[in-house]
Measured scan of single mutants.
Amino acid sequence: NQESVVAAVLIPINTALTVGMMTTRVVSPTGIPAEDIPRLISMQVNQVVPMGTTLMPDMVKGYAP
Rank of each mutant, 00 (worst) to 15 (best):
V6R: 02
A16M: 15
I11K: 00
A8G: 05
P12Q: 08
L40M: 15
A8Y: 06
T23I: 08
T53S: 08
Q2T: 10
G20W: 05
N46P: 02
N46G: 04
Y63I: 09
N14V: 02
G31S: 03
M21T: 04
L10H: 12
T30K: 11
N14W: 12
M59Y: 10
M21K: 03
I41S: 04
Y63D: 04
K61I: 12
T24V: 07
V45L: 06
L10Y: 13
Q2I: 12
L17P: 02
V27M: 14
P50Y: 09
P33S: 07
T53A: 14
T54S: 05
L17T: 00
R25G: 10
V45P: 02
T18N: 08
E3A: 11
P29E: 06
T15L: 07
E3G: 15
A64S: 15
M43G: 04
T15V: 11
R25M: 04
P33N: 14
P33I: 08
V48W: 13
D58V: 12
D58N: 13
P38E: 09
E35N: 14
E35H: 08
G62S: 09
G62I: 04
I37G: 03
A7K: 00
T30Y: 11
M51H: 12
N1P: 10
G31I: 03
S42P: 03
P12H: 13
S28D: 13
T15H: 06
V6W: 02
N14A: 08
V6I: 13
P57Y: 08
L55Y: 00
Q44A: 13
G31L: 02
P50T: 07
E35K: 15
S42H: 07
V5H: 00
L17A: 00
V27C: 03
V26E: 06
P12V: 04
V26K: 14
N1W: 08
V60S: 01
T54L: 06
S42I: 03
T24I: 07
P29G: 05
T23H: 10
P29F: 05
R25Y: 07
Q47M: 10
E3Q: 14
E3W: 11
P65M: 12
G62H: 08
M22I: 05
K61D: 15
P65V: 14
L10T: 14
I37L: 07
M21E: 02
D36L: 07
M59D: 03
A7T: 05
D36T: 07
S42R: 10
Q2W: 07
Y63F: 15
Q2N: 10
V60M: 06
S4M: 02
S28F: 15
V45I: 06
V6E: 04
S42A: 08
D58T: 15
V5R: 00
I37C: 03
A64R: 14
P38F: 11
M22A: 01
I41W: 05
K61P: 07
T53Y: 10
P65K: 02
V9F: 14
T23Q: 11
S4A: 03
K61Y: 09
A16S: 09
V9W: 04
V49E: 00
N14I: 02
L40D: 00
T18H: 15
V27A: 08
V26A: 14
Q2R: 12
L17V: 03
I37M: 10
S28E: 12
D36I: 09
V19K: 14
Q44P: 08
I11R: 00
T23D: 05
I32K: 00
G20T: 12
E35P: 06
R39G: 06
T30L: 13
D58A: 11
L40W: 02
M59V: 05
M43T: 06
A7P: 00
A8F: 07
V48Y: 10
A34R: 12
T54I: 08
I41T: 14
M21W: 03
V5C: 03
S28I: 05
N1G: 14
P57C: 04
A64P: 06
V19C: 04
T23P: 01
A64G: 14
N14F: 07
D36A: 15
N46R: 09
